[in-house]
Simulated scan of single mutants.
Amino acid sequence: MPKQRITKEMVVNAAYEIARNSGMEQVMVKNIADKIGCSVQPIYSYCKNMEGLRQDVIGQVRHFIQEYVAAHIDEKDLFRSTGRAYIQLAKEEPHLFRIFILHQRKGISSLDDLYQTEANPRAAGFIAEELHISIPEAKQLHLNMLIYTIGIGTIFSVTTPGISTDEIYAQQEAAYEVFLKQALRTNEQ
């Protein structure tokens, strides 16, 4: 039987599947080799260090999440449905959600830096137009909801047997109403 040629893509895909099913802490050379069905040697030839491989996995996670959220949003209620999509993601893919939320973000020294890095650059304009508020208030509302959704999504992804999605959505909606009132009040001043 001829030897199987192991490629970097196979290594990264195996590492991604391990992370998706068991968490990033299980992405180890031996586990990757077992998943592919090879010795550890080919893994070491592609992975000079595990940090580089983990960054490749994080790239795949980010891509998956972008596609997931895009497929789960309601264009008629974009802002709310995006938040709900992240909560649904936390329920369906808790390991990927935690990897996405908890990976290190370099060069972030303020919440504004985080917002600029993580948010769609057109989001504040869209929110401002939809809710008839200024761009700065829309940006603050969006940032508040990002922070809140990340927090409640993280709680949701680490609890067992699990909090109901209805309870999470109700809490998310209550937070939205409070943040929206604050934005409208600020907008009127």
Rank of each mutant, 00 (worst) to 15 (best):
A138V: 09
A124Q: 05
E137V: 02
K139C: 01
T117K: 13
Q88M: 08
I87F: 09
K106S: 09
L111E: 12
A119Y: 05
K139M: 07
K106A: 12
Q140P: 08
L146P: 01
E118Q: 08
F100C: 03
H132S: 14
S110C: 13
L131R: 12
I135H: 14
S109G: 10
L143D: 06
E118R: 11
Q104N: 00
A90H: 06
E93V: 02
L111M: 15
I147S: 12
E130H: 14
A128F: 07
L141Y: 11
P136G: 00
N144S: 15
L141S: 07
L143S: 09
R105T: 06
A124N: 00
T117H: 11
K106V: 11
H142C: 00
A124T: 02
P136N: 09
S109Q: 11
I87T: 08
L146N: 12
E93K: 13
I133V: 08
S109H: 15
I133F: 01
A128V: 01
R98P: 00
L96D: 06
A90T: 01
A123I: 04
L131D: 01
E92W: 07
L141M: 09
L131Q: 07
I101P: 06
Q104W: 01
P94K: 03
L131W: 09
L89M: 10
K139I: 06
R105H: 15
N120Q: 08
E129K: 09
A138H: 02
L131C: 00
T149K: 09
I150G: 10
I101A: 03
I127C: 00
N144K: 13
L141V: 12
P94I: 02
Q116S: 11
L111D: 11
R122M: 01
A90P: 05
E129L: 03
Q104A: 01
S110W: 07
A138L: 05
K106M: 09
Q104K: 11
D113K: 04
P94D: 10
L131V: 02
P94R: 02
H142E: 05
P136V: 06
K106C: 00
E129M: 00
